[in-house]
């Protein structure tokens, strides 16, 4: 018996207790956490941005480094939130039994998941802020307007965290996440306009990538970083919001089915 209202994220005090727990752990293991979150995007940015940028020059009216940095920013938000909502959430749910302990307090599953969902997006924000700073130093950012990417990053984080939470609710082991990464995240990373404009894809593929959240994430982040005019903002925000809310709702249903037995 699940009322619809239970599926919408209820941001009670309780959810923030879970968020706070994760933030405290993050603070404890700050160095390794930051290293993992920055390391890879930083290498992409330096290696590909400078290396390929040399040959490419401009792409879509902006230096390739800016083009790539905006794509990397959006995909780093995707990866950070996805990893947190999968590996970390699963670890707390299954081997560590942290949720068993939490569910003996007044918190309900939707509070725990709301806390995890917000925390995953927060982590996206933290890594994106770092990458943005690096991109700024490298001269890939056109002015302070780029700070508007941060709320967008948070929304991107919520979208991918929602899907990641579904994966955690379904997983029977860590191996399960490999399917999602190989079959969904990696193709999205390659096809959604991070490295080149989606308009250069064959037409049928162009249609397909339009339903992927990362495509819309990149479309929002890129003009903000490059100082170019935004287009179709409502559509992009709507797609990301739809992924975020429906992902969360489905994750609540599935996690209830898994834990409340």
């Amino acid at each position: 018996m699940t009322e619809l209202s239970h599926l919408l994220p209820r941001l009670r005090h309780a959810a923030f207790a879970v968020w706070r727990r994760n933030a405290l752990v993050f603070r404890k293991f700050l160095t390794p956490s930051l290293f993992i979150n920055f390391g890879e995007p930083f290498i992409y940015l330096l290696g590909l941005g400078y290396g390929l940028g040399m040959f490419i020059g401009n792409m879509m009216n902006m230096p390739y480094l800016t083009f790539l940095a905006s794509g990397i920013l959006a995909s780093a938000a995707m990866n950070t939130a996805s990893f947190e909502a999968m590996y970390s959430v699963y670890t707390r749910m299954v081997p560590q039994r942290t949720y068993d302990a939490i569910l003996a307090t007044p918190l309900e599953i939707e509070d725990v998941l709301a806390g995890e969902w917000l925390w995953s997006a927060t982590k996206s924000l933290i890594s994106a802020a770092g990458i943005l700073a690096v991109a700024g130093v490298l001269g890939a950012v056109d002015g302070w307007r780029a700070l508007w990417t941060l709320p967008v990053i948070f929304l991107i984080g919520l979208s991918f965290a929602g899907i990641g939470l579904i994966m955690s609710a379904l997983a029977r082991g860590y191996d399960f996440f490999n399917y999602y990464m190989t079959l969904v995240l990696t193709p999205m990373f390659i096809l959604s306009g991070v490295f080149y404009p989606v308009t250069s894809l064959p037409l049928p593929l162009q249609t397909i990538v339009q339903v992927l959240p990362l495509t819309h994430a990149v479309e929002l982040v890129r003009p903000l970083m490059a100082g170019l005019p935004l287009s179709n903002v409502a559509l992009h925000v709507a797609v990301l919001t739809a992924y975020a809310l429906s992902g969360f709702a489905i994750a609540v249903l599935l996690t209830r089915r898994r834990l409340l037995v």
Binding site: R20, R21, L24, V25, Q96, A101, I102, T105, P106
Partner: peptide, 24 residues
Amino acid sequence: PQTDNLDPDFTVVENLRIYARYFG
């Protein structure tokens, strides 16, 4: 509970503190 589910990311006193937060 029957099985230990203390929070391994925290110390003894932190476990108490964090858990209290769940009760507000």
